[in-house]
């Protein structure tokens, strides 16, 4: 149902393992795979501690991959780089620098050949489109949490990254500021079409902002459990999205998944609930390649 075509970003069987006290490797993330098309907005949801942020930091190059591959625009990713800009829950601004200088820091690195005027115009442009045209010379301590996060977003977008990585970027904001900033980010992405992955706990946020929601199973050994396509047209309008007849079906689908994971996490299934189906696989049978059929979905 997605309008997106071939993959731009490919996460192939990502594994992240840490040694446990017994010296064994505990796989926090175990075989996370997904493909993301250019310009697509993908959210990852799952319970706390399932490994969502681990996936994001591996993609950002901030966390070594134990095994698996990450391909971005046809090249394997290793280490951090300005082609992947990250916005964390806390904006992590340098407190002794103004909003303008915080953004300029990255711009200088990414545009070494630009003139001083060009860099200044870039910084002013990105601060103004996140709504800080009048506050760009303020210091972080003079800005609210929402305004600080706007600086963080402007700083990330100003790098003109191939991919934007958002790690619960609105998690610390009050609901009104959160909604405002969600729309700011969507407007930015409508204009700049940056491929985006967002980690969130918020199913409404995931539905409103994403083209696709990747649902992660509980860790350890977390991986993709199910994927939900969100076919709402862009640019999106919150009232239209909330009024769409499918909205509450999508919401129910995500909540059903999270509740199912929650029941397993807390061992709460009733006695009649069967064990997961054991995997019986003939030993002689190898892994099958999945044929990429161009078939369109047409439920009748």
């Amino acid at each position: 149902m997605s309008q997106f075509g071939n993959s731009y970003v490919e996460l192939d069987r990502l594994v992240k393992a840490y040694p446990n006290p017994r010296g064994e490797a505990t796989r926090v993330v175990d075989g996370f795979s997904t493909k993301i098309a250019e310009g697509e907005f993908v959210s990852v949801i799952g319970h706390s501690g399932c490994g969502k942020s681990t996936v994001l930091t591996m993609l950002a190059g901030l966390n070594d991959v134990t095994s698996g591959n990450i391909i971005l625009a046809g090249k394997e990713v290793s280490g951090a780089g300005p082609d992947r800009a990250v916005v964390f829950q806390s904006p992590c601004l340098l407190p002794w620098m103004s909003a303008f200088d915080n953004v300029m820091l990255g711009v200088k690195r990414c545009y070494p050949k630009a003139t001083r005027l060009e860099r200044k115009q870039l910084v002013e442009y990105f601060l103004s489109i996140v709504g800080l045209g009048d506050a760009m010379h303020k210091y972080p301590k003079e800005l609210s949490g929402g305004m600080q996060q706007r600086v963080g977003i402007a700083r990330a977008i100003a790098l003109r990254p191939k991919m934007l990585l958002l790690d619960e970027p609105f998690g610390k904001l009050d609901s009104l500021t959160r909604m405002d900033l969600q729309e700011t980010v969507l407007n930015l992405l409508n204009e700049h079409r940056i491929t985006t992955m967002m980690i969130t706990h918020d199913v409404d946020e995931a539905i409103f902002m994403s083209d696709r929601v990747v649902m992660m199973t509980n860790g350890p050994r977390a991986k993709v459990g199910q994927v939900l396509d969100i076919p709402f047209e862009r640019p999106r309008n919150r009232v239209d999205v909330l009024g769409d007849e499918m909205y509450y079906d999508f919401r129910g689908c995500l909540i059903d998944f999270l509740e199912g994971q929650d029941r397993r996490k807390h061992g709460e299934p009733d006695a009649s609930m069967p064990e997961p189906k054991p995997v019986t696989k003939p030993e002689t049978v190898q892994d099958l390649m999945l044929v990429q059929s161009p078939a369109e979905v047409s439920a009748v």
Binding site: M1, S2, D12, D229, V297
Partner: peptide, 28 residues
């Protein structure tokens, strides 16, 4: 399979007597 995706997607389906299940499945 579908180009650009690493999951199994619904290619075709016939549903009888199903409501939300039938509406949601093409998106999963």
């Amino acid at each position: 399979g579908r180009p650009g995706r690493s999951e199994l997607c619904l290619a075709d389906a016939c549903y009888t007597g199903l409501g939300r299940f039938a509406k949601l499945s093409p998106h999963i």
